[in-house]
């Protein structure tokens, strides 16, 4: 989706800034926002660029760095931790051959930690993009990653 299309969806008022950024970033292949785009948004809402930048750096779901096509976020808070989250993480690291905070060479996957996803009754938990996977085991993780790798242009 083009930035202009997203901007047109919302009232031209600065309190929609976070909604606009979230909506637009979602549609981007590498889940990042560029300086150029922040400028355009600031101009559209008639606010300072620094205001937009401060919001983008404050909220952890925004990124100024390009990421992999699929961002994998593993929850590492206590309820997941006591339910063997480490096994899930290790399986992911081995399969993707990257560490937390890195992106695979083919730019398919980025591996990250996330704070609690509010699904602690089904721990351990991870998200890929907007999809939450629960009650994970190493085998389930293997199947999920294989499935994502198998998709051509998903």
């Amino acid at each position: 989706m083009q930035l202009k299309e997203v901007l047109d969806k919302y009232p031209q008022s600065e309190d929609y800034l976070i909604e606009i950024l979230m909506d637009y970033q979602k549609h981007k292949m590498h889940h990042d926002l560029t300086e150029e785009e922040l400028k355009t948004i600031a101009k559209h809402l008639d606010i300072k660029e620094s205001r937009v930048s401060s919001v983008v750096t404050f909220y952890s779901l925004f990124s100024l760095e390009p990421k992999g096509r699929h961002v994998i976020q593993v929850c590492h808070d206590v309820p997941c931790h006591v339910n063997n989250q480490t096994a899930v993480l290790n399986t992911l690291k081995t399969m993707l051959n990257i560490d937390v905070g890195q992106t695979t060479d083919d730019e398919m996957f980025t591996l990250e930690y996330t704070s609690c996803l509010g699904a602690c009754d089904k721990a351990p938990v991870m998200r890929i993009g907007e999809k939450t996977f629960m009650n994970l085991t190493s085998n389930k993780v293997k199947a999920i990653i294989a499935e994502y790798r198998g998709r051509k242009h998903a």
């Binding site: 800034l17 404050f58 909220y59």
Partner: peptide, 26 residues
């Protein structure tokens, strides 16, 4: 509806008010 963007402190009432206004949640 207003959605958050990955910040726990925004659950605090004053930070939430800032966030609803489209600002950093301080």
């Amino acid at each position: 509806i207003r959605t958050g963007a990955g910040s726990y402190v925004v659950g605090e009432e004053f930070a939430m008010i800032e966030s609803i206004e489209g600002k950093s949640g301080r």
